[in-house]
């Protein structure tokens, strides 16, 4: 994935973060969406280690040893932010206070199933907070490269890996497309600049429903 395709994907996901939302950005790629949210947009960023009101990354040399996000990055606390313990943090998640979470994926399926925590025999380091975020956020977006590093589709008809949560995903953002999970299947709703419909279909392991008319480009 080129850096411009990655930035376009991150910026596109950031456009779905709107004023008043409480949002959790998952570890890795999703955390970087923070850099594309307008500084004056009133959004509350939650991190599951115990903060609502992440300000941004701490400037080099200004890190507070006691202030990190769940990925271990040094951050700042925005004005109006709060700190709390891990039980309160997940009460916020399970209690339905998260308007949106953006998560990474090993595999995501046309029925909204998500697999992002275990590859049996290869990677099994524990689930962290992913299950509760995926299962309980009001809206779940997946942010991922469209294919893996070998070029295989990450969007499939059904996941082959053990699931993080069943039918939880609403929208998928990739370097090639934006797709929505709906009851009748996976809809291609936007396409990245310079990418053709045939290329998207070729890189996707599930049938895509495409509405008639011009396809919005991001």
């Amino acid at each position: 994935m080129s850096s411009s395709a990655k930035d376009r994907m991150l910026a596109r996901a950031a456009r779905d973060i709107t004023p008043g939302m409480t949002v959790n950005l998952g570890i890795g790629l999703p955390t970087q969406v923070m850099n594309f949210v307008a500084a004056d947009c009133p959004v509350c960023l939650h991190s599951e280690n115990g903060i609502a009101g992440v300000g941004g990354l701490a400037a080099p040399g200004h890190a507070n040893r006691n202030l990190i996000d769940a990925g271990g990055g040094y951050i700042t606390c925005a004005p109006g932010g709060s700190f709390f313990d891990s039980a309160v943090s997940f009460a916020l998640v399970r209690g339905g206070r998260l308007d949106l979470t953006l998560l990474g994926a090993f595999e995501v399926a046309a029925n909204g199933d998500l697999a992002n925590w275990i590859i049996p025999g290869k990677f099994a380091a524990g689930v962290g907070g992913a299950i509760e975020l995926a299962q309980k956020a009001r809206r779940v977006g997946v942010l991922t490269t469209h294919t893996d590093k070998h070029g295989n589709p990450k969007i499939l008809e059904r996941c082959t890996l053990p699931l993080t949560a069943v039918g939880c995903v609403h929208r998928i953002y990739t370097d090639m497309a934006v797709c929505d999970v709906r009851p009748d299947g996976l809809h291609l709703v936007e396409i990245a600049e310079g990418v053709t419909l045939a290329e998207v279909r070729d890189a996707t392991g599930a049938p895509l429903i495409v509405a008639a008319g011009p396809m919005p480009i991001f």
Binding site: D85, A91, G126
Partner: peptide, 13 residues
């Protein structure tokens, strides 16, 4: 190793 979902771990404690 027993893995527990993070918020479930917190709540069980």
């Amino acid at each position: 190793v027993e893995f527990v979902a993070q918020g479930i771990l917190a709540e069980r404690i």
